[in-house]
């Protein structure tokens, strides 16, 4: 295991990926990827198609095992820990393309989000709290999730993730395929969730959107982190454009 690159972080990050190398068969997806997600922040991972950003999320969730490198959540190693245990420790996921359970009602979907918890009373409280944040979801509780529109489904997916009372939410392309109206709503909600104290890690292809809400960002290009920095700085960085256009980057 390689030591993580020394960052000038004032405190231990909530989640840390250190020197991750991931392979799909013989194809290497990640090359020494190191990412730190500070507690209470919104961190986004930007990258184009096939840059390995969705895989990075799967690595965090334990769905894909890296060949080398380590993952630390709240000071504890979580590499090699089964997914259900990782969820139990406080990481929730809003998967790519939402992935609701289409034949279950919205209410059942929300309760599936709290699957890892056993405190029924607190779950009910959290449901009320989550529905405050997503009033639209509250109107659809008894509807089958598969019948909702894309934007509504995205809301349900985010609400479902919050039901586990996570400390970290991982979102894979939360704005993908949404109408412009819903894109703004979703970004607002991500900020709102974050203000309530939940750390957010989001994987996005749409850099300009993601950088509006994020605090910190990493840019992934064909499996390597080529750029990182505060979102505000990156928003005006010419290299972002270059990275997306596939130009040479002197990181």
């Amino acid at each position: 295991m390689k030591a993580p690159p020394s960052e000038t972080a004032t405190r231990d990050p909530l989640l840390r990926l250190a020197g991750i190398n991931t392979f799909y068969g013989a194809v290497q997806v990640h090359f020494d990827v190191s990412i730190e997600i500070g507690a209470g922040r919104i961190v986004c991972l930007l990258g184009g198609n096939a840059s390995g950003k969705s895989t990075a999320m799967k690595v965090i969730l334990g769905l894909v095992r890296p060949r080398s490198g380590s993952i630390w959540f709240d000071g504890e190693p979580i590499h090699g820990v089964p997914t259900q245990e990782i969820i139990r420790r406080g990481i929730a996921s809003v998967p790519e393309a939402r992935r609701l359970f289409p034949a279950m009602t919205v209410r059942e979907n929300l309760l599936m989000g709290a699957y890892a918890r056993s405190d029924k009373r607190r779950v009910a409280e959290d449901q009320a709290r989550v529905l405050d944040l997503f009033p639209r979801v509250g109107e659809r509780l008894n509807q089958r999730a598969g019948t909702l529109s894309g934007g509504e489904q995205q809301m349900v997916a985010m609400a479902r993730a919050l039901m586990s009372r996570p400390r970290l939410i991982c979102m894979d392309e939360p704005t993908m395929g949404l109408s412009p109206l819903f894109v703004d709503r979703v970004l607002d909600l991500i900020s709102a969730i974050n203000r309530q104290g939940t750390t957010v890690f989001m994987v996005e292809q749409n850099a300009s959107l993601a950088l509006q809400v994020a605090h910190h960002a990493y840019v992934l290009q064909t499996g390597r982190i080529v750029l990182e920095g505060p979102a505000r700085a990156l928003l005006h960085d010419a290299r972002i454009r270059e990275a997306y256009l596939g130009g040479e980057v002197a990181a």
Partner: peptide
């Protein structure tokens, strides 16, 4: 309905 999503909800 969705094996991978279930996994991400913490289902074993």
């Amino acid at each position: 309905q969705d094996r991978e999503a279930a996994l991400q909800m913490g289902v074993d």
